[in-house]
Design a protein around this nucleic acid. Structure first.
Lengths: 139, 139
DNA sequence: GCTCAAAATAAGAACGAGTCTCATTTTCAT
DNA sequence: ATGAAAATGAGACTCGTTCTTATTTTGAGC
């Protein structure tokens, strides 16, 4: 079952009705592999209102079908929750490109810290900032 | 030498002139131990213009006297660069409290990833989200 | 101390991301 | 088919941040 099918099903089960706007947002996310910002989605779906885009993303997040990716001060990005795996991002400071990565040692270290902390840690983010290969060439 | 003195000196060396506004921003940061948001600083210094607050923070960042702390979508916070050390933050999802931590294994893992990446990595952030002890008690 | 060009500043307009409101359209249980 | 409830689009609004511009302050050279 694809992510899109799973998303539709989960919406049904949650008792939501399905409109054209929601379908389009889901289709768009289905086709993307890395994070998309809310405004990017709005721009790519000119027939869908901004409010609807944000509302839909909020619902998708509640249903745990997408999660936010915080990439710096600018705008928030959203990404499909793929059961295949947890990962983090590198962001290019010049062009904004996002590249995913994952690392076992990193995850172990984070779980270690979380275990020793007084906080009840429920989530974590790691962001590497730098310059992507493409932008390095250009300088 | 205090952080404030170091900051003033560094500004001089960089060829900047010293105005009243900048002095006030530096004094305010001097007195704070953890991150302050730009707007918080603006609010606490009503006689200083918004633009000046932001410009000063930008310059402080360039001179490596403060660094940004990204704590979620809202607003960006700034924190004194203490030579004693690099650290990350846990943020409480209920009350917003920030608590610093640092961990050797975590840093090693991050440097490992950065070294293997095609990106030229210049900075990194780690944020643990959860519930602080104080808020855990209240529930 | 003065002087004056350059730097710093204050005030507020402008901008961009995100939220809210509300009138209209669509969905779906009946 | 019908109509109450949900979903939607358009645009007003908010808030953090940036830009513009006219004014004030600084400090190097006298």
């Amino acid at each position: 079952m694809t992510w899109g099918e799973r998303a539709s099903k989960r919406f049904d089960e949650a008792g939501f009705r399905t409109g054209a706007a929601r379908r389009q947002v889901i289709e768009l996310l289905e086709g993307e592999h890395c994070a998309l910002t809310a405004l990017e989605i709005d721009r790519r779906l000119p027939k869908v209102g901004r409010a609807t885009v944000y509302r839909t993303l909020e619902q998708l997040e509640e249903l745990e079908l997408v999660h936010r990716v915080d990439v710096g001060g600018e705008t928030t990005a959203y990404e499909r929750n793929d059961p295949t795996g947890h990962h983090h991002h590198m962001v290019c400071l010049r062009c904004g490109r996002l590249v995913p990565f994952s690392d076992q040692a990193l995850e172990r270290a984070i779980h270690g810290v979380a275990g020793r902390a007084e906080f009840e840690v429920t989530a974590h983010d790691v962001l590497l900032r730098g310059v992507c290969p493409r932008c390095q060439e250009q300088s």
